[in-house]
Nucleic acid binder design. Structure first.
Lengths: 357, 357
DNA sequence: TTGTATGCGTTATCAT
DNA sequence: ATGATAACGCATACAA
């Protein structure tokens, strides 16, 4: 009888007496509701998917936590998937999520490449929210920061302190032979960071944070009228702590090494710190450092490190809020949200010392 | 007609020609399989749940990554839930996962309290695998380390170096007034870390890693014939970096401060390092430190920190493997797996120096 | 090899 | 206020 279902599901009309009976029988028989059947009928699973590069990276862990908390508040569960920055894994993950009928997807896209799988998500009607990076040609919400401005702030801080030889430690969005190409000029950067045949200005298409941060590095120099030495603005060929360490090591071995460094995220920053340690350099006397991402450890190194703080948890939470708004029928035009960042000046940055001339 | 279903699902008999036709029509019409319906029919969702305390904690992030990788290899997706070490949230999470009909659950139990919700999971037939901690009265697999032995190794290392005043920096499994009770004696420890009315020996019921590690701390002292100063073996009242810092600060202010410290995990270790920095103490000259968890940052502090390395990723991966074996029908008796740990001796430990007498 | 019919557990609709 | 019935999309048993 449907009355039992009504009592258990808490909908429709049920007399109090009957409800009691039903509920009692339910516990007695160990009734467990089945959300799969409910989802099948309701065509909504109360489930969303999160696709990040790697949950072990504190950036994605914090973002996921924000997503998870907001989702739970609204009675949603979250699938976690790692893409390892690989387009094929990202596609696979998205497909799996769609097959599982998630109500929406939050995704940190893997980069420059084509995004037909993401466009098809949008076309299929499943809400999609980008986090950390936005894909210009996919009409979806995005929760990011202003990477160009943030990097400009960080490098501007170093320039203001009097540094003139500032190294850029940033991963390369390019793979293969071009990976270690220098980044010395806005136009060259624009040409390299945009897919072939696309002619928009960088600002309109900036998608990969590391590229945007490299752009900010250049902009800060130009604003200060300081020329960039191409040997200090090479891209780290692989996205790993070790590759960053090696690149910094090379730059430190130059006849005229940098007096300061700007690392584009926490992985690059960790590798940079390792290289400085190995070289026996002391911050900020021998060299200054600013890195992205305000992780716990940046406050306990000797000295504590000046960082750009991103509101990562909030980015995740906001992404989830926007996604759930879409799930609940919000059809306003896609929004590009940029959350504010802060420069936290700590002990690793100072004016270039006599020892670092 | 069922032929279409057979072609799309890839089961049963379908002639190659028909299959081609069906597949072509499928792409033309934009067919998307629906796993909810499949799950409903198949009574299996190819989904598992992971319940950890906090994905932001690198321990759980690494474990989750191991779980996630193995799950994906087997075609399973993973729900991520955070319990924040709260029993109510853990219960809520488990209930939600069961309602969603997950095929299995991997869970780091929240502690000592009653576990009727977990027993009911097992009784409901849903496979359950514990990670990091095991609940003695719930018959399920567990993937842990030997916390007592690991702590004994760490503290034994300090004792062998000649330290006699070693501080314990460990969270308290007890909440409320007793939280800061000293841990000075095996029996007292046993009495306090076991629920009322349970009389088993500690070794049989050890569940909370911090308690087990405190136990190892005591055992190492006893084995070395070194008495424990109760003022150096207090429990940190709350599980936070700040609480650890405060506790260490107090101990450093003693008339006869410790010459070495043992921190029971990465959060406690971070707080300890902060306290040492604030006190202007240099490792290992002024004081030695061993901490649990081999995180990236422990290698880049000055000096690098001696740690106990847990195979956290492997623990997650192994938990997933065992869970999936259960899902696939393995009915062997519950296994208690203990993975090996390693002591990585780095620069933060040395013989007590003249300055630290 | 292909088609027909049925059920999974829920909820919505419609009578009663 | 309650009971009967249909439908969601898929996979199976069975018939053809």
């Amino acid at each position: 009888m449907a009355t039992a279902a009504r009592a258990l599901g808490g909908y429709g009309y049920v007399s109090p007496a009957t409800r009691e009976q039903v509920l009692a029988a339910a516990v007695r028989l160990g009734y467990q509701p089945n959300d799969v059947a409910r989802s099948m009928r309701a065509k909504t699973t109360r489930t969303i998917g999160f696709v990040g590069a790697d949950i072990v990276n504190p950036f994605f862990a914090n973002a996921m936590r924000g997503v998870s908390d907001v989702a739970r508040q609204h009675g949603f569960d979250v699938f976690l998937t790692n893409s390892d920055e690989r387009l094929d894994l990202e596609q696979q993950a998205v497909r799996a999520l769609l097959v599982k009928q998630v109500d929406g997807i939050i995704l940190a896209p893997t980069g420059v490449g084509d995004a037909p799988h993401l466009r098809s998500v949008v076309e299929s009607g499943t809400p999609l929210v980008f986090i950390d990076r936005a894909l210009a040609d996919v009409p979806a919400d995005s929760i990011c920061i202003d990477n160009v401005a943030a990097a400009e702030t960080a490098v501007g801080h170093l320039l203001a302190l009097g540094h003139r030889r500032i190294a850029l430690v940033a991963e390369s969005p390019v793979t293969g032979d071009d990976a270690r190409c220098p980044v010395t000029d806005d136009d060259e950067w624009a040409a390299r960071s945009v897919p072939d045949g696309v002619s928009e200005r960088p600002d309109d298409r900036v998608i990969v944070p590391s590229a945007a941060r490299a752009h900010g590095y250049l902009r800060a120099h130009r604003a200060a009228g300081v020329p960039v030495d191409s040997r200090l603005a090479r891209r780290v060929p692989r996205y790993s702590q070790e590759a960053a360490r090696d690149e910094v090591r090379r730059m430190l071995a130059l006849p005229d090494p940098p007096t300061a460094l700007f690392a584009s995220d926490n992985i690059m920053g960790l590798g940079t710190v390792v290289a400085l340690r190995e070289a026996g350099l002391t911050m900020p006397d021998d060299i200054s450092l600013v890195t992205f991402d305000d992780l716990d450890w940046t406050a306990i190194t000797t000295p504590p490190i000046t960082v750009i703080r991103q509101p990562v948890y909030d980015m995740g939470a906001e992404a989830a809020r926007r996604l759930l708004a879409r799930v609940n029928g919000d059809t306003s035009p896609p929004a590009r949200v940029e959350l504010p960042v802060r420069l936290l000046v700590r002990g690793s940055t100072a004016r270039p010392g006599p020892r670092s001339s």
